[in-house]
């Protein structure tokens, strides 16, 4: 069986009937398998059920498209996700390699004052990125303005970008520390940077899907 492409199955802007008749948010291969009124909403005579039906009737009658009531912020979602990706990757590096594995240390004996100052500034910027990204993403979800598909893409792009930056600028140009103090350092450096490239590639693939409206998650 050939899977239907998602953009054929679910239009990007759902019509207002689609909001209430069950295609909204369905897996693409299940669209059309159910009866048109498979999602009648809550039934019964309770307060919430009757309020829900009254509201749906109101919007159907007035022709308000509920999917367009909230503006989706693509750029802000992308920014928040990239900042979160950078911050989380920096935290993983700090916790995993500095604290748990102890492959490199708090300061090395041959660090200069300037290199340490740049290290302190970079560390602060990573922490601030994590905090701002978290606050922004929380707010976008609170107000329902997050754009589907851009979260994962931005997160992986941020992670991969930071990994590559750490491997090239911190380890090689500034010389703050190496990945591990062993003889075959080249293998470690290659693994470090290739992992960053792999994350970037997956993030770019997700970004292209999101731009085409084929994001893996439509919510």
């Amino acid at each position: 069986m050939i899977l239907q492409r998602q953009e054929d199955a679910v239009p990007r802007k759902e019509s207002r009937e689609a909001m209430f008749t069950g295609t909204h948010g369905r897996m693409p291969w299940r669209v059309g398998k159910e009866s048109p009124r498979s999602n009648p909403g809550p039934s019964g005579r309770g307060f919430f059920a009757s309020a829900w039906r009254r509201e749906v009737k109101t919007y159907l009658h007035e022709g308000i498209d509920m999917s367009e009531r909230v503006q989706r912020r693509t750029g802000a979602t992308m920014l928040a996700a990239v900042l979160l990706g950078i911050g989380i990757m920096a935290a993983l590096d700090e916790i995993g390699f500095h604290q748990v594995l102890a492959w490199h240390h708090f300061v090395e004996t041959d660090n200069s004052a300037l290199a340490l100052a740049s290290d302190g500034l970079l560390h602060t910027l990573e922490l601030v990125m994590l905090v701002i990204g978290g606050a922004l993403m929380l707010r976008l979800h609170e107000t329902g303005q997050h754009a589907p598909g851009y979260r994962g893409a931005g997160f992986l792009l941020g992670m991969g970008g930071f990994q590559l930056f750490d491997g090239i600028v911190d380890h090689k140009i500034l010389g703050l520390h190496q990945v591990r103090y062993v003889d075959n350092l080249l293998v470690y450096d290659l693994c470090w940077n290739l992992a960053g490239l792999l994350l970037l590639a997956i993030g770019y693939w997700l970004l292209r899907r999101a731009r085409r409206g084929e994001a893996l998650s439509q919510r």
């Binding site: 708090f106 300061v107 004996t109 660090n111 004052a113 340490l116 100052a117 290290d119 302190g120 500034l121 560390h123 602060t124 910027l125 922490l127 601030v128």
Partner: peptide, 13 residues
Amino acid sequence: MAAHATLSKWMAR
């Protein structure tokens, strides 16, 4: 924040 982090690294080094 950066000055705080830098100061602690300088103190250790």
